[in-house]
Design a protein around this nucleic acid. Sequence first.
DNA 1: ACTCTTGTTAAAAC
DNA 2: GGTTTTAACAAGAG
Length: 287
Amino acid sequence: MPELPEVEMVRRQLEDKIINKKIIDILVKNFKSVENNSSFITELKGQKITSINRIGKYLFLSTDKTNLYIIAHLKMTGRMIYVSYKDDIQYGGGHALSKPQAKQPHKHTRIILAFADGSHLYFNDMRKFGYMKIVTKDEVDSQRASLGREPISDDYTYEYLEEVLKGRKTSVKAALLNQGDIAGLGNIYVDEACWRSKIRPDRSAEDLSLTEIKKLHKSTRSVLQDAITYGGTTFRDYVDTNGKHGNFTDKLAVFGRDEEECRRCGSIIEKIRVAGRGTHFCPDCQK
DNA sequence: ACTCTTGTTAAAAC
DNA sequence: GGTTTTAACAAGAG
């Protein structure tokens, strides 16, 4: 499940690998993965990616063509796998990558971009929910406008979080998952942030005290920053552009640790359903 | 065979 | 009528 830290890892790596490389060929193996846009190939072929930005879990790629941008979303199982020309040669066209995806293209490859230097970018996505779509500047702007502030951003203050939670009768978890208010948190980091701030994710959002909001503000920020430091979390599907796993997985306090001992108080971590999602928390030290 | 997994959104319910 | 909850999407793991 790629959330903000995982998408940021992909962004940074793509920035190093594909900026200013000319796209000389495109293969779309699953039309839905380009949002059924028939001009995806003709528009993009011959262009260069000039910058790669990210807001929340969305990637925004600029091209050197006027008014031509790409918005990409990995959803649950999307992967961006980069294979250089050198890797192609070294492994005899076998495209060696570390597990879990040894060869490219892969069974789940939906889109392939071929660059002028012989390298390839493979968009692999088992469940076909993710996409890369071409858009105009206006569409980029409206997508950006639909997203709330990022917890790692300077404008994400505890006053902002207070405003977001005020009067909301829904759960803390549902509120934190709402990308229109706060961009970048997903199922994993919401659970982790709630554990760090000792707040139960099924609490009503409007019932949090100012002290608790300040703690939650701090923990949502720190958990994302820590996860970026460790290269993101691989719980099930995420790998970076080299096919490598994230190392924050070992640092998780509650997500996927149901039936195990709380690292803080030793109680047994429980798993319940909140906001329609599997939710992990410590019944003793989270109130 | 049946349940569970999740990011986003549209539809349904409140 | 704005807010909240649920279902759908897809395909695989267990």
